[in-house]
Design a protein around this nucleic acid. Structure first.
Lengths: 208, 208
DNA sequence: CTTGCCGTTGTAACGGTGTTAGCTAACCTG
DNA sequence: CAGGTTAGCTAACACCGTTACAACGGCAAG
């Protein structure tokens, strides 16, 4: 019993240290930006010394991976908070808009999440969670038979890559003369091209 | 007169050295990849020593900028070589497909061209050239009154950001289960949503 | 209480990076 | 031939990620 409490306390201490390091990582990251982040800068912020970082995380990449996972979870939560209505098209439209909004609001996090790091091929579990939520929303539309692509995956990939492009372009060149209505217009256009008009809507238009 | 030939020859020599360095840069870049490229690796390839590189280029970024400019020119040339037909929609479709094809065929170059480097806000002149060619092609469509966006810029930005997303996704995760028809389907969908059907086409369909 | 183990932390160092100071040698101009 | 400009080098600086190794700490067993 006493050994259990001891090991438990040890684990709590460990989590506390990891938490402090991760928080400091995020602080420094937001201050100096994605490119100028370094372990040296981190340690002079969080009090620990460099080898301690490596005692709690395997790598610099491992450290960033942990933070990325947390951030993906935050993104997934934000997407799940988007209200769902009856219209499946409006639902994925809302999701796409929320995704772009997240990226534009947290550019540093977005860069961290979607910059492919060399040798790191597998996305974190929280990333899959966010993707799955989008795919599920899209599946409803697919089952209604209104998707014009051969499979729902194609539509989902097209939409998510468009959204990634939308964010990438605007955070990598914030001063460019981007169209004010770019996000809505492009998402709407893609959706217009992806889904066939609903029967009800069509009959409304044809016989008013 | 003799001073002119001297200075000319000096300039030629200078260009020759820059050429050799740039070629070696490209070689090393293609060999070890975008992330592991370093000046040390470059100099052990091209024969020059590190300070000589800085004698011909301001920075590591300056060196890469020069190469990027050349590569953008190559991209622009490749886009201009795309045959133009009578249908303006087919023309920009061809351009978009060519762009994606270029990216997928030269992933290292693409990463170099479109990875935003910190502090580098202005795109190289050759990049503007490529973009202008796309905008011009799109302008034809705009003048025909078939674009559904408020201005041609919005459509152009949407299309180019979709294409960037298409390439980014696939080169950053080559092993993912991408849809085989993703490129064509997404570009076609976006175009379907961006342009209104032509009068001629519509009358053909309505009264056969 | 002492001994020993294990997790935690720190010091010092290694190999690598981009970059610069400063020297030498060559060259054309005067 | 003297003098300035250019090209090239050696050596070094400051920083990076990472690790070998020693020292400190608390807890369990003897």
């Amino acid at each position: 019993m006493s050994t259990e409490t001891h090991e438990q306390r040890r684990e709590v201490q460990r989590d506390l240290a990891r938490r402090a390091i991760l928080d400091a990582t995020e602080e420094v990251l937001l201050e100096v930006g994605h490119d100028d982040f370094s372990i040296r800068r981190l340690v002079e912020r969080c009090g620990y010394t460099a080898p301690s970082i490596y005692h709690y995380f395997t790598d610099k990449d491992g450290l960033l991976d942990a933070l990325i996972d947390e951030r993906f979870a935050k993104l997934a939560a934000q997407l799940k908070r988007v209200p769902r209505g009856l219209d499946p098209v409006a639902n994925i439209r809302g999701l796409a808009l929320a995704f772009v909004r997240f990226g534009l609001k947290n550019p540093t996090h977005f860069r961290l999440l979607f910059t492919p790091r060399a040798g790191d091929e597998t996305p974190p579990p929280s990333g899959e969670e966010a993707r799955k939520h989008i795919e599920d929303t899209l599946a409803v539309l697919w089952e209604s038979g209104r998707l014009r692509t051969g499979d729902p995956q194609t539509a989902g990939q097209a939409l998510s890559l468009l959204c990634q492009g939308l964010v990438w372009g605007r955070i990598s060149r914030p001063d460019y003369a981007w169209s004010k209505t770019l996000t809505e217009d492009s998402i709407d256009a893609l959706l217009r091209g992806l889904v066939a008009p609903d029967e009800a809507v069509r009959s409304e238009k044809e016989e008013p």
